[in-house]
């Protein structure tokens, strides 16, 4: 049994070589000490991004509010940035944003939730494994493609059925935006529902309740906060969506509730003004940032609200 000790004797003296190498490892020691700092500096780029966004929006928006009173901006119903006597009322844009979001949520809310119910409560493992990746494809389609689809396909169909609808209108992009948001609501709500413990379902099913009754009376109430959070995130997504409404809803700045007409959202306004090469330093240029700041506050509030809801009301199972 002496092969082991022989092996060590014959062997090169590794431990000695290591000890010698240790002495000359000062450079790598220094490197080792610098690593955390280097990584921290790279990680702080994300913080710089936030600061950059805040600085950009705030500094330019303040310029705008020096020229247009805040109160006038937020309560004005007339938006005529290019006219001789320009008026900068934000309400038409807020109106367009809210209406397109409502239309989108009319589609995405129920269909997304019902998809989630099917995937979480009814679908077999095999069916779910096929359907979920397909739904993810829907989420991966670039928004410009949806915009094209709304403008060249959905709008003509709507107009064939309902001739009063204009060539550019808020209805068609709202509907298409809803389709785009379905996978988001479906997958987030499904997550919330699958995390409801099976014991709760079994308790209901064992008393003779049908799957539908169990879903409506046990699963959905238990997953309610997660479902609401997914809706809020969907709303945030709709508010920030740009290309679909830019292409299919045109640039009319009318303050109207008529969904057959063209309306402009905050995002579409930014595209129009930035793309129109507004001269830097002009009031219309600064208005870009005031609108973007409002948009930023809207979506940030929604995202924080979603996180608050899912944390605060998280069910303890």
């Amino acid at each position: 049994m002496s092969k082991n000790s022989e092996a060590k004797k014959e062997a090169v003296n590794v431990s000695e070589m290591i000890a010698q190498n240790k002495k000359k490892k000062n450079i790598s020691n220094l490197f080792e000490k610098l690593i955390p700092t280097i990584l921290f500096l790279l990680a702080s780029i994300t913080i710089l991004t936030t600061l950059g966004i805040l600085y950009t929006l705030l500094s330019q928006a303040i310029e705008f509010f020096k020229r247009v009173p805040i109160w006038e901006f937020f309560t004005g119903t007339v938006l005529k940035p290019l006219s001789q006597n320009p008026e900068f009322g934000l309400l038409p844009l807020i109106n367009g944003t809210i209406i397109s979001t409502i239309i989108a949520m009319f589609v995405a809310g129920p269909i997304g939730l019902m998809s989630a119910i099917y995937l979480s409560e009814y679908a077999s493992d095999r069916v779910r494994r096929i359907l979920k990746p397909l739904l993810e494809i829907l989420a991966g389609i670039p928004t410009i493609v949806y915009g094209f689809f709304a403008f060249t396909f959905v709008t003509p169909i709507i107009r064939a059925i309902w001739p009063e609808v204009e060539a550019t209108n808020i209805l068609s992009p709202g509907l298409v935006m809803g389709v785009m948001i379905i996978p988001m609501i479906a997958s987030l709500s499904e997550d919330a529902m699958t995390s409801v413990p099976n014991a709760m379902r079994e308790g209901s099913l064992a008393m003779g309740a049908t799957k539908l009754e169990t879903t409506l009376k046990v699963v959905i109430p238990a997953a309610f906060s997660g479902i609401i959070a997914s809706f809020v995130l969907g709303i945030s997504r709709a508010i920030g969506e740009t290309m679909i409404v830019t292409i299919a809803s045109g640039s009319s700045k009318n303050f109207t509730f008529d969904i057959t007409q063209s309306m402009q959202t905050m995002t579409a306004y930014i595209v129009e003004v930035a793309g129109g090469e507004a001269p830097a330093g002009s009031t219309i240029y600064y208005s870009l940032y005031a609108v973007a700041l409002t948009l930023f506050v809207f979506t940030l509030t929604m995202n924080l609200l979603a996180r608050y809801i899912s944390r605060k009301f998280r069910e303890e199972y």
């Binding site: 092969k3 082991n4 092996a7 060590k8 062997a11 090169v12 590794v14 070589m17 290591i18």
Partner: peptide, 20 residues
């Protein structure tokens, strides 16, 4: 990781360690 790079030495270490 302790700085031994020589292929011949490494080969020897591998054999000795696996035998051991």
């Amino acid at each position: 990781i302790h700085g031994i790079r020589n292929k011949k030495i490494l080969d020897e270490i591998v054999e000795n360690s696996l035998r051991g």
